[in-house]
Write a protein that binds this DNA or RNA. Structure first.
Lengths: 171, 171
DNA sequence: TCATACTTTCAATATATTCTGAAAGTATGA
DNA sequence: TCATACTTTCAGAATATATTGAAAGTATGA
């Protein structure tokens, strides 16, 4: 493999890792994901361990997390016992899956907690300002939830193109 | 203050903190932000320190970060020397500011890095698959950047209502 | 059923991030 | 200018998070 391509792959893997850690995702999980995205063939655990210099346990945990997120699939190659892994290659599908998971894991619990805040605050004059602010925030989070839900709805996403058309028309 | 309201505020502050740490934001920064959002009056550093049981240095650093993000303002109260802090109260404005900052700090550097990957990969047959995938990802990230840019453009946001109308029509 | 070839788990360890608090810095008004 | 009343900084300490690797678990096919 050419030097340039090697460097480019390395940059790709570490860029994805850096980005992920700014968004609350484990850096190694993102590096594994990036490695699989950058690789045409499916990779075995041993290949992944070697490429990223990580332990078997670490690789196993992060591959499990990535399959839970629906970003990576296990595949069998020929008659081999060993399992191989490959990433979802369609970037829009990938985006949908991430949207779906973060909605479920993070946004929905926040909605529940904010609703609980409103209930707890009671209905006195004293808590009026707090209730108002909490209610506005709740509305905002619900809107975000709705948008993410739409984004996550379709595999071949039909929503984005239309949103983009609208946004571009507003320029 | 009623017990219920006290509990509700505490829940509000810790919910915001938990959520933030899942999104790559310092938990204390988010708790300070939540405290100010939940409070009608502007608060002094000492009040914030007491409410969250944090040190002066920690409070100072996080207030600085919040003002850099444009989420919190310093205000003077009467003729006092001491400074007070209050949060942006409009949740849509808040959302715009966050979008603007994350676009600038995180999305734009990733676009640069992906462009560099494409350049480094060269144009041989060997790197074709890698280039294709990187280019698709770059397009996705650019789209996200564009959408965030639109969202961040206006103070009183005119974009969201129209996007929502479109999405609701697609239900 | 058993030996084999693999995967997963988790306690101990390493690493990264955040927090503290005292010292340094800064602005105000007398 | 100086004393004062505050704010900021940053090295070291505390805490939280991620990683290792050996032991336990599991599936396969002979």
């Amino acid at each position: 493999m050419s030097e340039g391509l090697k460097k480019a792959r390395t940059r790709f893997v570490s860029t994805w890792g850096e980005m992920a850690s700014q968004w609350g995702i484990n850096k190694t999980m993102a590096r594994v994901h990036a490695l699989l995205m950058a690789s045409d063939a499916a990779l075995s655990v041993d290949e992944i361990m070697a490429a990223l210099s990580i332990s078997r346990g670490n690789a196993s945990m992060n591959l499990r997390a990535l399959t839970d997120w629906g970003l990576v699939r296990r595949v069998s190659v020929g008659s081999e016992r060993r399992e191989y892994f490959q990433s979802e290659k369609d970037v829009w599908n990938m985006c949908c899956r991430i949207a779906r998971e973060r909605k479920k894991r993070e946004i929905e619990p926040v909605i529940g907690a904010l609703e609980e805040c409103l209930r707890e605050a009671g209905d006195g004059k004293e808590s009026e300002a707090f209730r108002k602010r909490t209610a506005e925030l709740l509305e905002l989070v619900r809107t975000l939830d709705f948008v993410l839900g739409k984004l996550a709805q379709q595999e071949k996403n039909a929503v984005m193109p239309r949103v983009l058309t609208l946004l571009k028309a507003m320029s």
